[in-house]
């Protein structure tokens, strides 16, 4: 499996779940199955799509480890034939090593669960603590866009950094989660979170 490949190979594959059956059963107790799809930015839009992702992320994609040909594994969670959610993980560079950030959402893209599949940090326990990861439950990509424009008054901005010594890993976590939700929004949710409240006032602003 890809998991096996990723262990022995350089990081040529995106983040796939180590144990999708167990994780999906835990997060979605009513699930009966899931469908896996491998998607690359290159196949879905190439450099133009990569530029769109960078604009939405507010940051450049890392030229070596976030190339457009890295396949992402998306898991569509099913109850019988009905779609009840999505699970997707991304790789993100942290201060002490690579992170793997896994998000489970409902069909609207609202976070149901977030966990680190891999985390290299001396404060890993604090980051993995449910008291921290659970704060993201219920958020959508809109909340992360709002954080970029209004960091102090957004829901994401209210989340405290669990690290006492390594703010870089908190920032990396937020970047990885934003990237994860952007990819989900583009590949599965028809860009439904493109419109977010503007920085000042209540007018709508379109993220392109």
């Amino acid at each position: 499996m890809l998991v096996a490949l990723a262990r022995s190979a350089p990081a040529a594959v995106g983040c796939s779940l180590d144990d999708p059956d167990r994780d999906i059963r835990r997060i979605y107790p009513e699930a009966t199955g899931f469908r896996t799809e491998f998607i690359t930015i290159k196949e879905r839009g190439g450099q133009e799509l990569a530029a769109e992702i960078e604009r939405k992320l507010g940051d450049k994609l890392e030229p070596i480890y976030e190339t457009t040909d890295v396949p992402f594994a998306f898991y569509t969670v099913l109850k019988g034939k009905e779609i009840i959610g999505y699970v997707h993980g991304v790789n993100q560079k942290g201060k002490f090593g690579g992170m793997q950030l896994v998000l489970a959402t409902d069909i609207e893209g609202k976070i149901i669960d977030f966990y680190y599949q891999k985390l290299s940090s001396p404060e890993a326990r604090a980051f993995r603590d449910r008291a921290f990861t659970g704060q993201f439950v219920g958020m959508t990509l809109t909340d992360f866009y709002a954080y970029r424009s209004r960091p102090d008054s957004s829901r994401v901005g209210a989340i405290h950094n669990p690290s006492k010594k390594n703010p870089e890993d908190f920032a990396a976590t937020l970047r990885g989660l934003t990237k994860n939700l952007i990819l989900l929004d583009i590949f599965y949710l028809d860009r439904r979170h493109d419109t977010v409240p503007e920085k000042k006032g209540n007018d709508a602003q379109t993220i392109k």
Binding site: M1, L5, T32, G33, F34, R35, T76, K81
Partner: peptide, 18 residues
């Protein structure tokens, strides 16, 4: 080479070949 293929029906993945 390594070739991985997942095969699904309307109820999800049911067969994987590697």
């Amino acid at each position: 080479m390594e070739y991985l293929r997942r095969i699904a029906n309307e109820y999800g993945d049911f067969l994987t070949l590697d």
